[in-house]
Computed example of a mutant assay.
Amino acid sequence: MKRILFFATPVDIVPVLKRFEANAPLKFVEMGNLATPNRAIYLNSSEIPNPGIATHETGSLSQGYMVSHRDTKNNMDSFVGRKGEKRWSLDNSDNEETVILIMAGLGRTGTLLPGNMATLHETPVAQQLMKWFQSALKQEGFTKVRDWWLGREALAMLKAGKRLTTTAEQSPPEFDLTLPK
């Protein structure tokens, strides 16, 4: 699995998304296991609600989006849930020309939670989407600290001693990103 790890505030991530989608017409589809096959589909990143604001106290469980070219057909699985109800799942494993974007961002405690873009696939399309996103990070002034790309505000938060946790708001400080000595 290829993965790009990053920390971004709303001010950091919005221009990255704009630059990323300038490469081709893309769509951002809400992911998750839902009781309906209907998903919110955003044809422009500016339509995504609150980019850079975490939707969960754990970065990896914040709202994720399947990103692909607009004309890509998304495959969805249906299954029976624990209580016998029908559910639908949209997953990267079933969609070879997609990537997953979880922005996470500022949590309710002021902690900055990690985002990532990832794909299970080596298809040219999936790999191109990954390259476009990484290029957008670099062009928007993100700095690499250890394995993480940090936006300007995220880096300023780190330098000011604010928490940038690599896991969850409630995690102990040993899971926080620190500047190299």
Rank of each mutant, 00 (worst) to 15 (best):
E21S: 13
K144D: 02
A136M: 03
E30P: 01
Q63E: 10
K162F: 01
E169I: 04
K162L: 04
G110F: 06
M130Y: 00
T72L: 00
M66T: 01
K27W: 06
M157I: 02
H121M: 01
T55H: 10
T165Y: 11
P10Q: 12
L113C: 04
N38S: 11
A154Q: 08
N50G: 01
K2W: 10
R70C: 02
S60W: 09
E85G: 13
E169M: 08
S45D: 03
A8V: 03
V16I: 12
A126T: 03
G141F: 04
M117N: 08
L17C: 01
F79C: 04
G105P: 03
L164Q: 06
R152Q: 13
L43W: 05
T58V: 14
S45K: 01
L90R: 12
F175A: 12
N116P: 02
I53W: 12
W132R: 04
W132T: 01
Q127K: 04
M130C: 06
R3L: 07
H121V: 01
F142K: 08
V11T: 14
M103C: 05
G64K: 09
K86N: 05
L177A: 11
M117V: 15
L101Q: 09
W88E: 05
A160L: 01
L177G: 03
P15D: 11
K73I: 14
Q127C: 02
R163L: 07
V14C: 10
E85F: 05
N44T: 13
G115F: 08
K131P: 00
T9H: 12
K86R: 14
L164C: 09
G115V: 12
T166N: 06
D77N: 11
A8I: 08
L106S: 07
E30W: 05
F6E: 10
S68H: 06
K159C: 05
S45E: 05
L155K: 10
D12I: 11
S135K: 15
E96C: 04
S89I: 11
V67C: 07
E97G: 01
I4S: 06
H69N: 11
V11P: 00
N23L: 00
T166C: 15
E122H: 08
A154C: 10
L17V: 03
